[in-house]
Structures are given as C-alpha cells and as structure tokens.
Design a protein around this nucleic acid. Structure first.
Lengths: 254, 254
DNA sequence: CGGATTATTGAGTAATATCAATCAGCGTGG
DNA sequence: CCACGCTGATTGATATTACTCAATAATCCG
C-alpha cells in the first residue's frame, strides 16, 4: 500500500483522538480502510449538490470547501476543511447530498467507500459514536459560522475566521495558531464570510493597519493574538471544537 | 406511564421514519425510553453555554431555540426546534455544550438521559446510525442558515425561514406549509436571521404588501407559496431535509 | 387598571455592495 | 525572450441596505 495513504489515515486518527478515545484495535481497523487517492486542481468540484455518493472523503493536502449553490450561480461556502478533516461524513448516513464540495487550491484527498465505514462501525460500535462525534464537531463549527454571519461585522467576521483557522491548523499540526499558510483568495474568503472580495480586501487592510496582522505571500502572521481574538468577539465557549486547551475533553461513550 | 410521554415518543418515531427505516423492535425500544417531562415558560433557559448535560431533549410542544451567546449579551439563534425534534442530540457525544438552549414560547420537553440513549445504540447498532443521521439533517439545516445569512438580503432570508418552518411544520403534522402558527416575536425572528426587530417588521410588512403573506394573530398564511419560494431563492437541493416530497429517501445503513 | 412587552413608524447614520478602473503576478505560446 | 491574457489584489466613487435612535401604538398579563 502506498505510504501516503497510511500517513493520511494516521493523521485522521490523530485528529479524531483530540476528542475521542480509541482502542488499539480501533486504530488498526481505521488504518486498514481501503481508499482511493485523488488529486484536485483549484476549483475542481468533488461533489455537486444533488449527487449521490458512495464514499466519504478525507482531506490529505490542501483545502476543500463545502458549499451551497445560489440562484445566480454564486456559491456560499459553509465549511473549510484541511488535512486530517473528513469533509464528507454527512454522506455516510445521507448519501444524496444537498451540498457541494470543491477544491479551494491544489489538494489531495482519500476517498473511502461508505461500505468500508459501515463495516467498520458494525464491527466497532464505538466508532459509530466517534464518527457521530466528528459530525457534531463539524456542526458546532457551523453554528459559530451562523453567529459570525448573523451577528458580527466584516472586521469581526474575518478576525474570527483567521483565529478559527489558526487554531485548527495548529491542532492539525500544519501551522501555528498565529503563523500559518492560508492558501485562499480574497474572493474565496468573501464567499465564506458573506462579503464581497472588495470588502474583504479593505477589511484585511484595516486589520493590517491596526497592527493585528501581517500577510506575506499566503502566510498569515497574527501579530497580536489576544487583541485579534478580542476583535473577533470570541466568547469562551466559541472555539471548544478547535481548541486543544485544557478544557478540551476526550470522550468514549461505549 | 403518563400517556403524553408515549405520544411524544411516537411523534419522535414518526419524525425519524421520514428519513430512517426502523424495525419494530427498534420502535419498541425507543418507546421504552425513560424520560422526565419538563415545562418551560417563554425565555426559560434549558441549557447555558458551557454546561455539561446528562440528557438529550425532545421537544413535545412549543419551540426551543439553540443559541450562541454574544459579547454584548445578545444571542444569535442557530436553530429553531419544534414538536418531534430532538434539540440536543449533539450532547450525547459532546456532553459539554458550546451552545445554549432556550424556550421561545410556552413549551414542553422530554429529557432523556444519555445513558438511556447510549444503552439503546449499544443494543441496536442501527439506531446509532439513525441518531447520527438526525444530527446530519440538523447540520444540513444549519448549512442552509449559513447560506441565508451570508448570501441573502432581509426579504429573502425571512421568506426562506417562513418556507422552511412551513415545510417542517407540515412534516411534523402540526400545520400546513402555507398555513401554520408561528409563535415567535419579531425580535426572536431577528435574533435568528441576523436582523434587528425593526427591520424584521418592515420586511414582513413588505412581504404582506406584496401579497405573498398574511399574518393574523400568530398564524402565518402564505398566499402565494411558489412566489414566496422564488423570493426565498430556494434552490432544488435547499429543502431536502425538511421536505417530504418524492425526492426524499428512507435510509437503513445497517 | 397599570406595567411590561411587542409592533409599528419616522428620520438620520453607518456598513457594505456595486461599479469601474488600475495594477501586479504569472504562466504560456510565439 | 517577450507579449499576451488571465487571475487576483487594490483603490475610488457612488448606491443601497440595514442599523440606530426615538417615539408612539397596540397587546398581553397580572
């Protein structure tokens, strides 16, 4: 088996174990999942709304977005996934997607047949809880996005996104919370935060001018984390699902 | 056992069976769940962000909202639940809540200990998939809310909410999609749709003037459903999780 | 009946979108 | 190697949406 698949599954296991307890047998079972590697270019659609899929998708490299299509052809991004994230767990229990998936940059994913996952949870009932928990963590992030879009202005929204992505990058081991590579265009950030790319540009400029932020190339450098988190209007419970701080808990229900 | 609990669980089973296939044994097992009835007044908090809970909550009567707290004490509503909805399934696998739950009006809920639900899924593995699926359907709705808040103006947002709630009420058997009782204040609608109550008022007025809508007391009467759905910018895949139309599918993974 | 919440309306303000233009980087084909 | 075309970033001017503040009316509830 190509090594990259093992590495990717190990990364997924590490991701899962931030919140869920696994036995050695369960870890081994996950490592034995069969999958197909797929390489994506910027803008490639992995899944279109209405499609029926037979596999879940693990992000190995790059970023994949979930989106909802809009009337005028525009797309609202509803989640941004990174290495270690399963971006399509929904489809295991609801195979006909109401959403789409697209590559935000050059990415690699592992497609894992639903049948494999269902066999896995049949043999290891705790893994059903684990996948369910991953879905909930995803949903908690969506809940925060609703709050961002519904209750915050552009400055707080973008600050919030940058804090969230930083924490998640750090947790995934692909950056530091205050220093990471964000390979997104301002248009894509706008599609996620419900803003025009023009306004994203002005708002990022403002955050830079305020000395909270630096961007060279695609690297985000958060100069003053606490202040940015303040601007982002982050409340204590806001980032539980992306934090690896003491208040994080590891669960095993079964 | 008081009859109301059985009725509520039957309603929950009916809700589940819109998307999931259950065996008779599974139905019976759900009916045997132990629970505690709880009555709530308008504004009563069922759960505050940061609390750790030991039970899931089934709505029997009225409406419960999930919310995220904001800095200035305001709350962003991230979901509106109605009779038959489990409003707290997240907590079964993530007991320390990052969210809150509050009664939007005079409501009744059934609190079901996590231990009961975990015992249930241990005995009937398919029920783990069922609860996971319910979580996904909840998340799909959240995804649509993100799209509403991120990509639509006030008129489309409110039209969308009214269509969504109509379809869900109809599906739950507590109204017709174009004629149902919505016992919410305009302030609460604003908290959900990211608008001020003033703007909600003007926007509802506009929809009424356009002949799309009537409201007497708390009853919503949608005069021109197709036109309202058009205004709501609903795309075909938008309402899959609340629709009981032909494209709905019933799943059984295990 | 009286106080509190909710709905409604008006006037002015702030945030964000829209439209338009320019500029920079970058790969590609001649 | 350079010219070209494409995408993305940046900036300016203007239009529109929604918010804020404020006042009043209607409704509910005890």
């Amino acid at each position: 088996m190509p090594d990259i698949k093992n590495l990717a599954l190990l990364q997924f296991i590490a991701h899962v174990e931030l919140c869920s307890e696994l036995s050695q047998r369960e870890r081994d079972a996950i490592l034995n999942l069969e999958s197909r590697e797929k390489h994506l270019g910027t803008g490639d659609d992995l899944l279109r709304p209405g499609d029926t899929v037979a596999h879940a998708t693990l992000v190995v490299k790059g970023n994949v977005a979930r989106f909802d299509p809009m009337r005028r052809g525009t797309r609202q991004i509803t989640a941004i996934y990174m290495a270690g994230d399963m971006c399509d767990l929904f489809s295991v229990v609801v195979p006909t997607a109401g959403w789409g998936l697209t590559a935000l940059n050059v990415s690699t994913v592992l497609q894992i047949p639903h049948a494999q996952i269902i066999d896995l949870v049949r043999r290891y009932p705790n893994l059903a809880m684990v996948f369910w928990r991953e879905t909930v963590l995803d949903a908690m992030l969506m809940s925060h996005w609703i709050t961002n879009l519904g209750s915050k202005d552009a400055r707080a929204r973008i600050a919030s996104l940058l804090c969230e992505l930083g924490l998640r990058m750090e947790r995934a081991g692909i950056g530091k919370r205050d220093n990471y590579v964000l390979d997104l265009t301002q248009l894509q950030i706008g599609d996620a935060m419900g803003l025009t790319h023009v306004h994203v540009n002005r708002t990022l400029g403002r955050l830079k001018n305020e000395g909270l932020l630096n961007m060279q190339e695609r690297r985000i450098c958060i100069t003053d984390w606490d202040h940015l988190a303040e601007v982002a209007e982050i409340v204590p419970t806001f980032l539980i699902p992306c934090s690896d701080s003491p208040e994080r808990e590891v669960h095993r229900a079964i």
